[in-house]
């Protein structure tokens, strides 16, 4: 039973991160390889807001999340906007460079030591017994948050006008512009939402298990989850996360703990060989001559 709970928590983590990859990819076909770093940045921002609003942990969290959203929008406006119209690969490499920059900045500002935001907020991470296993409070919060985020995103993309426009812009940017949709606004919105969900993930993970630069690796491991499910499908991201999390937890349990960092990538390669566009993704068009 404990195994199932571990899988569920890990899957929730991966899913919460993966939807950030999916949002940006779906709208602008850019793979944001700085997602892990942005997520880590949000967790560090929480550290700062926690010291600012030490009386009021919830306000601290809300402030950190809001700041992260701003960071995402600013990243688009000042950096990625310049890369629209360039080759996709150049844009992806720009995100890689951004990631490297953020990694450096985080250490410069907050030092490389392991931090504990939960302590800064004065919270204790209780462990709750459920169904014959135990789950940490932050872990439970992760599962609930992921469920809420996915439900929210689903409703947003399905029924709200901006969500529909986001899907439209992702499908045919030219036509979207002809229909009066401002692509820059839509892309900025996508970046904002993506860093927002990333911030939720980063903050909850750091509340659960502390904070240092290894968080980047978690972000990177969530990427296979997004790709296995199909880079442009939210449902896919959810299922991909479950698959990756299950594979990882089971491998650690039955085979070797050292494998934990490779399993997602092994699954990724398997998927790329069999079905590169993922379980639920749309197949990329063949190029015309």
């Amino acid at each position: 039973m404990q195994l199932a709970i571990n899988i569920a928590v890990l899957a929730a983590i991966y899913a919460l991160i993966a939807c950030g990859y999916v949002l940006i990819y779906r709208v602008s076909r850019v793979l944001n390889l700085a997602h892990g770093e942005l997520m880590m940045l949000s967790a560090y921002l929480l550290l700062t807001t926690a010291s600012l609003f030490s009386k009021n942990p919830l306000i601290a969290i809300a402030a950190a999340i809001f700041l992260s959203l701003c960071v995402g929008v600013l990243v688009y406006l000042f950096l990625m906007r310049r890369m629209t119209g360039e080759m996709v690969l150049a844009a992806v490499l720009t995100t890689v460079a951004l990631g490297v920059l953020l990694r450096g900045l985080v250490v410069l500002v907050w030092s490389a030591q392991q931090q504990n935001p939960a302590q800064a907020l004065g919270w204790v991470n209780y462990s709750i017994p459920v169904f014959g296993g135990r789950i940490s409070a932050a872990g439970a919060a992760l599962i609930i948050t992921t469920a809420l985020v996915y439900a929210g995103l689903f409703l947003f993309l399905r029924f709200s006008r901006y969500g529909i426009r986001m899907r439209a812009a992702g499908q045919n940017p030219l036509l979207a512009a002809q229909r009066g949709i401002s692509l820059h606004a839509i892309y900025a919105l996508a970046w904002g939402l993506s860093t927002l969900t990333g911030a939720l993930a980063g903050i909850l993970i750091s509340l659960d298990s502390g904070l240092d630069s290894t968080m980047v690796l978690i972000g990177l491991k969530a990427f296979p989850a997004a790709l296995v499910g199909g880079l442009d499908s939210l449902v896919g991201a959810l299922i991909g996360s479950l698959i990756i999390a299950a594979a990882e937890v089971l491998m650690i349990y039955y085979v070797d703990a050292l494998l934990s960092d490779v399993v997602p990538f092994l699954v990724l390669i398997l998927m790329l060989v069999v079905r590169p566009w993922g379980l639920f993704g749309t197949r990329e068009e063949l190029d015309r001559v």
């Binding site: 439209a168 499908q171 030219l174 036509l175």
Partner: peptide, 8 residues
Amino acid sequence: RDKVFPSL
């Protein structure tokens, strides 16, 4: 051509 969003 490409005058509608096909998946919508």
